[in-house]
Amino acid sequence: MNPDFSGPDAWIDTLSAVFMVVGAIMSLGAAIGLLRFPDLLSRMHAATKPQVLGLFLLLAAIGLQLRTWWVWPVLAVAWIFQLLTVPVSAHMVGRAGYRTKHLHRELLTADELEAVVQKAAAEAALKDDPGGGR
């Protein structure tokens, strides 16, 4: 990197370098969270850092480094695609983790799904009782 900060070029380089380092630290934070958090749901909290904010910072660094305007829509499409797919897969993994009881129930502050599960189980038992079998 050139040391003179007279024009905007060096500032753009510095900003993109900061974006790249922070985006890399996001994935390091995800790895530390995966190693240190106790159960699946809190590990899912740590795992979303490089997928959304880290990818945003790195794509912004690409756009700053290339210095052309037409790459920004392409990078935005890549990021929006990631934003659309990540919540769906996180929802599926979290629901499967709840069903197979991969969570520490004493760490939860609120469990809004338990009332729904109890009600569905009661309705299923009521339906099973007179008929015998579904």
Partner: peptide, 9 residues
């Protein structure tokens, strides 16, 4: 995600 980030860098 880490692999994609490395490709972006």
């Amino acid at each position: 995600a880490i692999l994609g980030g490395a490709l972006c860098v």
